[in-house]
Structures are given as C-alpha cells and as structure tokens.
C-alpha cells in the first residue's frame, strides 16, 4: 500500500508549524509519529496535499512537574510516558495506560499529542486525560489557548483544534489516589472494544470515562453522579451506559458494549477504590 502523492515539509519550530498550517489551511496535515495518519493515507482514506512534520520538535517532548500539575509535551511518545518516573509516581494511570496502546513499535513512534488530536473514541489516552480532567494547550496564529479536555472532543475524529492550531502540551493534575484502567479487547494489541478509566478522589467519588462507547471519548456522568449521590459501586456501575448510543462493529453490538461498560466500570471502581 502506497499513499497518494503529497508535499512534505519539516517544521523547525512550533511557530513555523503554525504558520505553515495557516498558509495551507485544510490542505495541510500535521505529522507527528504518524501512527494514526499514515495508515489512513496508505489506505487512501486520507489524502492531504501537504504534510507538516513536527516530529523533530524536541522542545515538545517532555514530562515536567509544574507544582499542582504535570505538563506533558504533545510530542512525548507513549514509550516515554511508560518510562517516565515522574509520571509513574504522580499520574500512574497515564503511564500505565500508555503501555497498553498498540504494540511496542507503535509506542516507540506514537505520541500523546497525536493520539489526542486524532480524537479517536477507541483510543486509550484521550479517555484517560478526560477522566483526569486534563487541560490541552494549543498554539495558533493568534497565540496560545487552553482547552479543558471535557470540551476538546467534539465529534467522531473531530476536536476543538482549529485547522491552523498545533496541540503543544497536555496538563494533568497529579493523581496519586486510586485509579484503574480497564481495557477489553480480543487481541492485546487491538483497540479497546470498550475501555474504562477511573480516577478516585479518595472521598467516595470518582471521575470515570469511557472508550469506544460513542462518537467521542466520554465521561460517564451518570456513574459519577450516582457515586456523588452515595450509590454503591455496583449501583453506580449499572448506570455506565445510560443515555449512550455505542457503536456496532465486528466485535460488539451496542447491547454487548452497554453490558461490557457496566461490568468494566464496576471493576474499575472496585480497583480504584482499593489501589
């Protein structure tokens, strides 16, 4: 499989990337690790005229302690998230889950920013950042702005990023309390059929998000509210799929996904409560 022809340019800085994007508009696509975009291009499901390679922007690969939160450069690879001591201590759910993305080769190339900007509802990391209540930093021609994760995922493969914006940083609060990530799939390296991220606050409440239960990564608000209202874990989990319209594919019908969501949310809450 060979992608259709395109032009290629390598951005020397984030500013340059942004200016290239604003020059070329919809025709241009950012290329980071390339593990979401290149497979689509090989199948000719994506045919951008210009690729702006930001893969070399070392300035955007870091995990930093910023006091009340951890800042992660958008071009930090999954592999680096797995091996970041800082992340393992301060936000273990993110480090752990990065180790479940794809396979080792994918983790050597794929980046957290690429994963979030692609906005795939079946992806692991978007749901985790969502459960953590993270904030995304985007740079555009008009400067930098922050977008709460809860407002970032807009529709199927659609995010709040403008075509001329570059995702530069992901900020997540330190989350040393209970957590769990439940990934259910048929082969270890596949996308989740359903996934659940849970981050406990230690006071009986938890933030819970869902993978592959709708067009975007989702917060399981019905579960969160039930917990806040004092419901038991099992009771709260039974609301996992309330109001959701999960997709149907070769691996799962919507009914099965709803069922899985309740089971996995329960398991996630149980594990988060005991970790």
């Amino acid at each position: 499989m060979i992608p259709a022809a395109f032009d290629y340019t390598r951005a020397g800085s984030a500013e340059e990337a942004v200016s290239l994007l604003s020059q070329h508009g919809d025709e241009a696509k950012l290329l980071a690790g390339g593990h979401s975009l290149l497979p689509l291009m090989k199948l000719r499901l994506a045919t951008p005229a210009l690729l702006v390679d930001v893969g070399r922007l070392g300035e955007l690969s870091y995990v930093r302690d910023e006091g009340d939160h951890i800042a992660i450069g958008a071009l930090t690879r999954h592999h680096d998230l797995v091996h970041s001591d800082l992340l393992r201590q301060q936000v273990p759910i993110l480090s752990h889950t990065a180790g479940l993305v794809g396979d080792p080769q994918v983790r050597h190339r794929g980046t957290i920013g690429g994963s979030l900007a692609h906005g795939d509802p079946a992806s692991d990391l978007p749901a985790v950042v969502l459960a953590l209540g993270g904030t995304l930093v985007a740079r555009g021609p008009r400067g930098e702005r922050t977008i709460p994760a809860t407002e970032f995922f807009r529709g199927f493969l659609e995010t709040a990023l403008a075509p001329d914006e570059l995702l530069t940083e992901i900020r997540v609060p330190k989350a040393g309390g209970g957590w769990s990530y439940q990934k259910f799939n048929r082969r270890a390296f596949d996308w989740a059929i359903v996934g659940v991220a849970a981050v406990a606050d230690g006071g009986g409440r938890a933030a819970v998000s869902l993978v592959n239960m709708g067009p975007t990564p989702l917060r399981a608000t019905a579960v969160e509210e039930a917990l806040a209202g004092g419901a038991s874990v099992a009771e709260a989990a039974s609301h996992a799929a309330d109001g959701l319209d999960p997709p149907s594919d070769l691996n799962a019908s919507p009914e099965y996904r709803r069922h899985l969501a309740t089971v996995l949310v329960r398991r996630a809450l149980e594990e988060a409560g005991t970790r």
């Binding site: 290629y8 290329l31 390339g34 290149l38 090989k42 390679d53 893969g55 080792p104 050597h108 190339r109």
Partner: peptide, 18 residues
Amino acid sequence: TVLLNGESVKSCTVLAVQ
C-alpha cells in the same frame, strides 16, 4: 520491523523522509 535509533519501529508506517 527495523531499529530506528535503536528502537523497534514498523518501517511501513514511517516515511523515509521522517
């Protein structure tokens, strides 16, 4: 799979220019 700077990558999903 080949090693790129010592790490395994799938060379079908890396552009030569990258």
